[in-house]
Design a protein around this nucleic acid. Sequence first.
DNA 1: TCCGCGGTAGACAAGTCTGTCTACCTTTAT
DNA 2: ATAAAGGTAGACAGACTTGTCTACCGCGGA
Lengths: 186, 186
Amino acid sequence: MPSQRREHLVQTAVQLFQKHGYHATGIDRILAEAGVAKMTLYKHFRSKDELILGALRQWDTESRNWLVRAIEARATDPGERLLALFDVLGEWFESHDFNGCMFNNASAEFADHEDPIHAAAAEHKRLFRNYLREQAVAIGAGDPDKLTQQIALLMEGAIMTAQVSGNADSSVAAKDAAAILIEASA
Amino acid sequence: MPSQRREHLVQTAVQLFQKHGYHATGIDRILAEAGVAKMTLYKHFRSKDELILGALRQWDTESRNWLVRAIEARATDPGERLLALFDVLGEWFESHDFNGCMFNNASAEFADHEDPIHAAAAEHKRLFRNYLREQAVAIGAGDPDKLTQQIALLMEGAIMTAQVSGNADSSVAAKDAAAILIEASA
DNA sequence: TCCGCGGTAGACAAGTCTGTCTACCTTTAT
DNA sequence: ATAAAGGTAGACAGACTTGTCTACCGCGGA
């Protein structure tokens, strides 16, 4: 029975880490915002790092589910899905307090690749690329791994550009590029 | 006469911010590593944020110079230069303590777009895109702005992917994609 | 009725952070 | 020779950090 308290705590942690970063977000702030006592946090997690890890794990499944569902609500053809990805990204970029991808940000703040936090970020990327690859295979791309990687690069580039420049339409340019690369991959 | 002390301080700050992030890097550590007294820091900068800004400004010019020079040492044709970019990136990714792009990381840790630190990061990106655009114009691209943005997206994507996955060959996939997009832009 | 569980509130320890201040040292120019 | 400039060393204040501990509260079940 993963208590509702824990759930709510992690949810709040996700939001704050997302918005302000990991080192800049203090435990006390998360606790206050979640309306949860400190002892409750330390009953469920051994340390702040464990909470970060919990937040990343939670957001990993949640965000991938959301993204895949949003894509598949827009397109059934695998080629169109790879393009719909960028429409969904564009929507995300426009959301009020968009601050890039939690996992990218985590890998920057926890640079050591051995760090479980960094590893969790890498794993998230790997898992989502699996979904992209399924689509690349389904459209019969000559080199599906290559196309997957190219789409993934455009995706990461669009996220980062939107984060730095604050300009949501990097998703449009990425979509255009993706269309060309998909065409060329046949 | 921008003292050598200041220069060395900023240089050290660049390295440490690069490697460990901004909030995670304490003033004292920078001071110790640089072998400089605290008062010297606060004589040249009003606060840690000002030092961060100084480090970003320094690295802005330094890194753009380095990058452009490395590209132009490899190719004279503008189209080849746009491709050589990715070879240079690949080299960078393989350097020992590569931890992504300082400016991307800064924009993540200082999410507020009004923050001068975030603004400095955005400005760096804008300036380097100018160089890319010159090349895009020189090859006679139909829509040079579009090609510029596409190349920039691939660049950011390659940086981010190398940072998270630790895999330097994202630059190769990006280069392949760039070649296709350049071809298609004619 | 009474016990125990899950939670709260908040004090606390020990460390770290930025930023200020004073006292001293060393070099250079007059 | 002396004075000013620029730097060092290190103490210090005050705030903030994570993590621990104690005392209490309220509810459900035996």
